[in-house]
Simulated assay, not measured.
Amino acid sequence: MSAIAPTRVQATRAYRRKLGDYEITALSDGFVDLSFGVWQGIEQEAFDAALTDHFMPTGGFRNGITSFVINTGAKIIMIDAGAAGLFGPNSYHFPDNLAHAGLTAADIDLVIPTHAHPDHIGALLRDGQASLPNAEIRVNQTELDFWTSEAAQAKAPDFMRGWWDLVRGVDRAYAGRLTSFADNAALGDGITHMPFPGHTPGHSGYLIESAGEQLLIWGDLVVHHAIQFPHPQASMIFDIDPGLGHQSRLRGLDLAATDKLLTAATHLPFPTFGYVARRGDAYQWVPETWRYDVSGLAWQPVV
């Protein structure tokens, strides 16, 4: 009998689905463990009860980090770019994941971050240099203004202060390739910006449409499915304006539930595609059933 050591890494870190004529790939960039101490606006008893209701251990949780690749047939576009190890030792699978998805760093044409936290832009740099040799970066103007502001950095808590330096590093590394856009801008390729401020001043969602099908990628509008769907008032210490973030969350959840939008997000359980259902005054996340076929193969019952 042969003894084989466990790999401790999931074999599936890239997941594809069709969206109209586009192919969307979710890329897992590992995970980060967070305790109750990062939460605001919710008591620990309610927090633990919500985790228990989802058959999860209490006291904290393990949160996935996911980015998305859109293959339009003419371009390779990324929404967010992973953490590059900046959110702990378990959050740097980005280069391997590109290879796992049949891509190289040189294949990426455009990156559009939902916001500028390290787990969304960290992998844009490697040793201080641009990791994507051909990519353009597009950032919401409000977000870019905030994260390049020395005044905003001076007011930040100590644990966040270095995040401004990361954004300035990205700005330098992609000089001439980084541009900004206004709220509600149509970004081309069927992508429309949707402002969801609060988590950060320019925190963004993107509505992607192809051949009549839509997907809303909403960044950190909901950071944990067991907590913020039933308790949308709950916020985190990472939120710049928790009250505004709460308003944005309610608006986004209402939109997704009303329009029955397919959604995806950075920190929902991988591969993160799913729907929002109303539950009284709160909401519930309904994961999309795993898709066995990517090509859109017609249903073929054998009986």
Rank of each mutant, 00 (worst) to 15 (best):
T104K: 14
T104D: 11
T104L: 07
A105N: 02
A106G: 11
A106T: 13
D107K: 01
D107F: 06
I108V: 15
I108T: 06
I108E: 05
L110P: 01
V111P: 06
V111C: 12
I112R: 02
P113E: 05
P113Y: 04
T114R: 03
T114L: 11
T114Y: 06
H115D: 11
H115Q: 05
A116C: 15
H117L: 11
P118F: 12
D119E: 07
D119H: 12
D119Q: 05
D119W: 09
H120K: 11
H120Y: 06
H120Q: 11
I121T: 09
I121Q: 01
I121L: 08
I121K: 05
I121A: 02
G122M: 07
G122Y: 07
A123K: 00
L124T: 03
L124E: 01
L124W: 10
L125A: 00
L125G: 02
L125V: 01
R126C: 15
R126V: 13
R126S: 15
R126M: 14
D127K: 13
D127G: 05
G128E: 09
G128F: 15
Q129V: 02
Q129T: 04
A130W: 07
S131Q: 12
S131E: 12
L132F: 15
L132C: 04
L132W: 11
L132Y: 13
P133D: 06
P133Y: 01
P133M: 05
P133A: 04
N134R: 10
N134D: 02
A135Y: 03
A135Q: 04
A135F: 08
A135G: 00
E136P: 00
E136H: 14
E136C: 10
E136M: 12
I137C: 06
R138M: 12
V139Y: 04
Q141K: 14
Q141G: 02
T142S: 08
T142E: 08
E143L: 08
L144P: 06
L144C: 07
L144M: 15
L144V: 00
D145I: 04
D145F: 10
F146W: 15
F146Q: 04
T148G: 07
T148Y: 07
S149E: 05
